[in-house]
């Protein structure tokens, strides 16, 4: 049971990240490498704010603003300076590494002695039986809130333009709208979510480390694809929900690989095999539905 809760907790944290990457990767069709640095950016801002006595909840909007600014820079480099999408993300990712170090002051900042959104006087005041479930409920609500806000946004005119920019830029131009602006906006929203996820992760693990961003994009893309491929048959399910489920499943695969008790050498191989199995099984179900 405790293991399942652990998977859910971490799955929900990375779900917020995956929602952000869903915007760039699926909607805008933009391979945004800056994610690997905006995730630790949110964490760095959080670590330095909390260790200087700011309220843990305040770190969330501040991290989002910083992430949005970083995303906007990626967009500006791409749109205004006509740098290729992949390269503009790489440029921002590379530069942010130093900025993250400057923000945090050093490569590793522990927060064990400070209140976080998961550990504070309010939580320790809860009945002892419910305390263990507090983080998972809080994280579920947070991921749900992000999903609902994103669904609402995607149904507005601006959200519609965002979807159109990825699918059919000519349509956006024919509506007399600037697709460049839409891209910058999309990257800002996406990286705001990524930084939010980094902020929450930092509070959850109670330390910041400069290398915590390595591999973030791969993990997020895997979650997005996993969720969307597997649940494509379910027409009623929104893509945003599929992404959240995908993220939990991804963490579940790692947990399963860990608890199989095989040689630590094989951890990544087992994770890869499990992911492949899920995708293939998901694909088979879909075929059956198509024929029926």
């Amino acid at each position: 049971m405790a293991q399942v809760i652990g998977v859910l907790e971490q799955g929900f944290i990375y779900a917020i990240l995956a929602l952000g990457v869903y915007i760039t990767f699926r909607i805008l069709d933009f391979p945004d490498m800056s994610v690997d640095a905006t995730f630790p950016l949110g964490a760095a801002v959080t670590a330095i704010m909390i260790s200087n006595g700011f309220h843990p909840w305040l770190t969330l909007p501040v991290s989002m603003i910083c992430g949005a600014a970083a995303g906007a820079i990626t967009g500006l480099i791409h749109v205004k300076l006509h740098v290729r999408d992949l390269l503009s993300g790489i440029i921002v990712m590379t530069g942010l590494y130093s900025i993250n170090l400057h923000i945090a002051g050093r490569a590793n900042v522990p927060l064990f002695n400070f209140d976080t959104m998961f550990k504070n006087t309010f939580v320790s005041g809860l009945p002892s039986g419910t305390q263990a479930y507090f983080p998972v409920i809080l994280l579920f609500l947070l991921a749900l809130l992000c999903k609902i806000l994103m669904d609402l946004y995607l149904s507005t005119r601006s959200g519609f333009l965002l979807k159109a920019t990825g699918d059919n830029p000519t349509l956006v131009a024919s509506l007399a709208e600037d697709s460049g602006k839409v891209k910058i906006l999309g990257l800002s929203i996406a990286n705001a979510l990524v930084a939010l996820s980094g902020s929450v992760m930092c509070q959850y693990q109670r330390y910041f480390d400069i290398s915590m961003g390595t591999g973030t994009l791969v993990l997020a893309v895997a979650s997005v694809i996993l969720g969307m491929q597997l649940l494509r048959g379910l027409r009623r399910l929104k893509a945003t929900s599929a992404v959240i489920i995908g993220s939990v499943l991804y963490k579940g695969c790692v947990a399963l690989a860990l608890s199989m008790g095989l040689s630590p050498f094989d951890l990544k191989l087992i994770t890869a095999a499990l992911l492949l199995i899920i995708i293939v099984i998901g694909g088979k179900n879909r075929k059956v539905k198509y024929h029926a």
Binding site: I5, G6, T214, G261, F265
Partner: peptide, 24 residues
């Protein structure tokens, strides 16, 4: 002994630790 190696992957360190905690 339950031995796990994170293979220098930060995302996995926390997961290994929470599994230890879950297994009490």
């Amino acid at each position: 002994v339950i031995y796990e190696n994170a293979q220098a992957d930060m995302g996995i360190t926390q997961q290994i630790a929470s599994q230890f905690a879950a297994k009490n």
